[in-house]
Write a protein that binds this DNA or RNA. Structure first.
Lengths: 236, 236
DNA sequence: GCAAAAGTGTTAGAAGTACACCCATGA
DNA sequence: TCATGGGTGTACTTCTAACACTTTTGC
């Protein structure tokens, strides 16, 4: 890690996936940078910001290092910067060790990003000693720093964004998905229940959702039709 | 300015007012900290973040110094942090001079806040040498740093927020306001036109807007009824 | 009395809500 | 054949959109 870094500003990424029932977050372990023992607590993937990159670039770098993905919509949603973010001394020490900082960290402001991923994509284990893991929101352990707060803020932000523009949610679904996958996803994001019949009607009116002639296979009940998402040409 | 500051992180505040026709932004002049010549270009009010305060506190401090207001909803809406923010060398030098920094500033990340104010409130001229001024958006000069971008991002953010929760807009109106004041405000935020009759119908259904028995005075046409805003008890 | 903005009702179409039963499949 | 989730239609209500004339006031 030879590049010059800004020791006061980081990005942290809330990578969200949906497994058909609930949201999952990709968390990593706080390990020393040499790889080795995985005893640290879990945290969000993140990094200090390099001097020659902007915030979006830093967030994309983190995502790419962790998953290999590059063409992903990373949404900045909030900065967290209270002096109490490092109140657990282990967190500060870990940062200093991991980034080989010379001086003591008093304060770090983080810019939080959120990204919606298909959970089936393979995750790389990083040489940097990352150990990435999808964890259901409900079973999320206490994370390092204020990362637990950041995750909750991300969920709240995604609700607002999906209300304004539901099409962002399709990043979470497989390329072919069933009506009930979409319905359950929307229900859990927006925290509502849809009537099933009415949902089908609404689905038929969504220009950006097109029914396929293909059906589910190998399920022990009537097979569901698949749909796919088609990006609207203008004005999401 | 003896407090310890974080030389890498600032807050900038987009203070918006509505004069009945258009949005105005409160801009200040880049002056030296000793007061004196007002030759600098305009910028948004802002400050580096002190080591013992969180981001919200820093933003409220800036607002209070400039206007004396304290109980105001300051909404964080985005961080700006590209390395090119200081591409105009004057901006960086001004910051160094103003804050009496010892070392050269290479990079500064700013957390942008936005706040909606009644434009009639009196603004203080600060001993710090601020010269605050409401400026209509349409006549906004090129601002220092990337502050022009920040203003546009604020306007876009307010549209999203008002779509999700129109009640934030009442901070912009006088305590008593007419139907057309509200209509023109909403039209300019949401970038739509409302049919006047339909708007009155909609107004009558807004629980949080109550008609008064009072009317305009001294206008050379039929006097308009006043309304007032009543905070909803739960769930804005 | 005239200029200027305020205020008012109806109708037609679209969208949303509530509700109960049969269908296809694998085990 | 049964358990499981998939899929369908109708009636009612609510919301939205379009549209033109009369009222009040100061000058």
């Amino acid at each position: 890690m030879s590049e010059q870094i800004n020791p006061y500003v980081s990005v942290d990424c809330v990578l969200l996936g949906f497994d058909g029932e609930q949201f999952n977050v990709l968390v990593v372990r706080q390990c020393s940078s040499g790889g080795g023992e995985s005893t640290g607590s879990y945290k969000l993937p993140g990094s200090l910001v390099y001097m020659d990159e902007n915030l979006d670039e830093a967030a994309h770098r983190v995502l790419k290092q962790l998953t290999g993905l590059t063409q992903v919509n990373m949404m900045q949603f909030r900065a967290f910067g209270g002096p109490d973010r490092l109140k657990n001394p282990e967190d500060g020490m870990w940062l200093e060790r991991f980034h080989h900082l010379e001086h003591h960290l008093e304060r770090i402001v983080t810019i939080a990003y959120m990204s919606l991923l298909r959970i089936d994509r393979k995750m790389l284990k990083l040489e940097g000693g990352y150990e990435a893991q999808w964890t259901p929101l409900a079973q999320l352990p206490k994370l390092a720093f204020d990362h637990s707060d950041i995750v909750h803020a991300a969920m709240s932000s995604i609700k607002d964004r999906a209300t304004l523009n539901p099409t962002i949610l399709f990043d979470l679904l497989p390329k072919k998905f069933t009506a009930s996958q979409l319905r359950i996803l929307m229900e859990s994001v927006l925290d509502v229940k849809f009537d099933i019949k009415n949902f089908h009607k609404k689905l038929a009116q969504m220009r950006y959702v097109v029914p396929l002639d293909e059906k589910e296979d190998g399920v022990s009940h009537r097979a569901a039709r698949y749909y796919k998402f088609r990006k609207p040409r203008k004005s999401m």
